[in-house]
Design a protein around this nucleic acid. Structure first.
Lengths: 138, 138
DNA sequence: TTCAGTGCAAAGCGTTTGCAGGCAG
DNA sequence: CTGCCTGCAAACGCTTTGCACTGAA
């Protein structure tokens, strides 16, 4: 994975962030997780490499740099995932299982929203989460 | 507002909840707020009528009874609003201002999502929030 | 009368901050 | 060499819990 490590380094630097081993490890962990993970999980899995404070501070910066997305699935803590591609989620209301959803709203919806939202001048982003029952919990 | 008070009482009772003065006051406050409010704001505005613990416990029950919706707009605390009608929000990423959005996704999207989400058996609900810049913050 | 509902105080948990030392550029 | 970055410990803010009292049905 040396190639991917180099790429991560470039990503960080082009975002104006120092490519420290902690941040590279954090990005790698997010990549291997393949699903949204909490700051707490990251701290635990990267024990000895990053401590909790650094995890939170690095995530903040990565979110600002748009390399990472912060999402909220109704639990009382935030989850993080690489912002590589735009997608949404469906969450099981019973067990909390999460699956990625590639479907998105029609682009016309955003313009209709902007037209109707009289107090707003621009729409930058959106969050779309589905809640349902997974097959194990039916 | 005696009529609305009676209606609230019926709503609570049909949900299997005792119609206490605290819960009625909470519902009234949510109604008059006309926008999502935090548990903290509710506690403050209803000082002397409900204390913090009761606000949280009552909100929990009202959310379970589907009389109230819990929403999350990226801040580090939950917001609550009456579940009277289905709608979404647009939030200013600079000042936090919130406006209601009556637009929603096309119903076909939900069935497409269910078809593609191989691990899920049903879609019950969804959350859709837009983020942008309000006219004051441009 | 009875049990859900309430208030107080204290704890729980995710997250943030102050400060001293360390490392990338 | 300089300023960003990191780790530790302590604080912070929202939310939950244990226990005894109260009031709706």
């Amino acid at each position: 994975m040396a190639a991917s490590r180099t790429k991560t380094k470039e990503l960080l630097q082009s975002a104006g962030l120092a490519a420290t081993k902690q941040r590279i490890a954090l990005m790698a962990e997010l990549q291997s997780a393949r699903k949204p993970v909490s700051a707490d999980m990251l701290t635990e899995r990267l024990d000895g490499v990053l401590n909790m404070t650094t995890v939170y501070r690095a995530l903040d910066q990565l979110v600002s740099a748009r390399l990472v997305r912060r999402i909220d699935l109704g639990k009382n803590h935030a989850l993080f995932e690489l912002a590589a591609h735009h997608h949404h989620h469906i969450v099981c209301t019973t067990c909390g299982r999460v699956e990625d959803i590639s479907e998105c709203m029609p682009p016309t919806l955003t313009s209709r929203v902007l037209a109707k939202a009289t107090k707003f001048a621009a729409v930058e982003d959106h969050a779309l989460e589905f809640f349902g029952l997974c097959k194990k919990c039916v």
